[in-house]
Simulated scan of single mutants.
Amino acid sequence: MNKLGIIALESAQNAGQKIDEILSLWRHGGHFLIPSSCPRFGSGEAKGLVKESVRDRDIYILVDVCNPSVTYKMDGYINRMSPDDHFQDLKRVIAACNGKAGRITVIMPFLYESRQHRRTGRESLDCAMMLRELENMGVHDIITFDAHDPRVQNSIPFSGFEDVSPALQFTQALLTEYEDLKIDSDHMMFISPDEGATQRVVFMASIFGVNIGMFYKRRDYSTIVNGMNPIIAHDFCGESVEGKDVIVVDDMISSGGSMIDVAKQLKDRGAARVFMFATFGLFTNGLDQFDKAYSEGIFDRVFTTNLVYQKPELLERPWYYSVGMNRYVAAIIDTLNKGESMSELIKPAERMKEMVELYKGKM
């Protein structure tokens, strides 16, 4: 195997350091982080710097395009880094490797522009363009988590693309945190907040051996607000949720309005406890509406991963559970660098079934 190197952009520095520590422990010493930076000129323009040799190394570049805490100064003003800025810095660092790396893998947990994954009119296909651009720059593999629509990989059919599910870690978190769950169709149900999340919900429900329900979003297609057609109502399809613990599963919580509306409807229908699973917790409208909904008993817990930036105040909320993913990412890097199969890592169904059966045996 080639010598391992990890480049963590500023947006993913904390995760990069922790992953490096884990790999150092597993490999009995040594560190793999390669220092890098993207300094800016007074005009706001930037350049990428890699401060150690990457020649013939197996390079893994970590980037969090959703991290709004990174800033830069331009014309005397402080600007927050947008996803566009983070993606530009990623390309700068790839270019700074000068084609000398043996292999480049980009680990981008939240896939940049993944919400703009299909064309419904005279629109740009931003996610597909991003993937093609990385491919043209010499990136061999792209690792992402819970892509909004994994079919975007069809735009780069000759490059590696792994869409990894954190379902195992969510299952572990739920079963560890709550010891009184009754896992059967009479007491538990998985809920899809919209038709797009159905596949995730079907997978989780099949592992737990319970039923599913689904909400359908009715939208006003005559209006666009914040780039989207606003939701008029959520209509529910499925059997009764009365007296059951329900788990709402989606890829992300953006503003959070849809999740809270779904949780309220489930409570109005008699659900016992409402848990929310979302791979990415962005909370773009702040936390006040979740604080209010929690105080009113609308939901019981929100589980999201630490794959993207987490606001410090979020980690202090009593209703929030952070699902740690650093060991999982380290395992992915370790496995790929050794040239071993990823199948067991990205297809965790058997391990999840064992976990659920073990939990049932303790009930």
Rank of each mutant, 00 (worst) to 15 (best):
H140S: 09
G243E: 02
A205P: 09
G243F: 11
M252S: 10
S165N: 01
N211A: 12
D184Q: 06
G256C: 06
D220M: 00
S165V: 07
S165E: 01
D186N: 14
I183G: 14
H140C: 07
F236V: 10
V249C: 04
I142V: 12
G209Q: 14
D186Q: 14
A197Q: 00
V210H: 05
H187E: 12
H234T: 03
S254D: 08
G196W: 07
E242Q: 09
K217Q: 02
N136H: 11
T223S: 10
E195I: 15
I253Q: 06
M189C: 15
I232A: 04
I253P: 00
V249G: 01
P230S: 15
T144Y: 00
M252Y: 01
D245Q: 10
V248F: 09
M204H: 10
H234Q: 00
I143Q: 07
M204N: 11
E239N: 05
M189N: 14
Q153M: 11
I143V: 11
F158N: 11
D251K: 08
E239R: 06
D163M: 00
G138V: 10
V139E: 12
E135Q: 15
I142C: 07
D184A: 02
F161G: 02
D146H: 02
L168R: 07
V201C: 11
K244H: 12
V152S: 03
F215M: 02
R218A: 04
T171K: 12
D245H: 12
V201H: 01
E239A: 04
F208P: 11
D149N: 12
E162T: 12
I156F: 13
P157T: 14
M252G: 04
Y216V: 15
R219F: 03
G243K: 10
H140I: 02
F236N: 04
H234R: 03
E135H: 15
F203V: 09
E177Q: 13
A167I: 07
M204W: 06
H187G: 14
A167G: 05
P193R: 05
M189R: 15
V248W: 01
D194F: 04
G196T: 07
Q199E: 10
D184C: 06
G256Y: 03
F161L: 13
Q153I: 05
I212P: 11
V152I: 10
L174M: 15
D180Q: 15
G196R: 04
Q153K: 12
D194Y: 07
S255R: 01
M228Q: 14
R219I: 05
A205M: 06
M188I: 10
D250Y: 02
N136F: 07
V139Y: 07
N229Q: 09
M214V: 11
D163N: 05
S165R: 02
C237T: 11
E177P: 13
C237G: 04
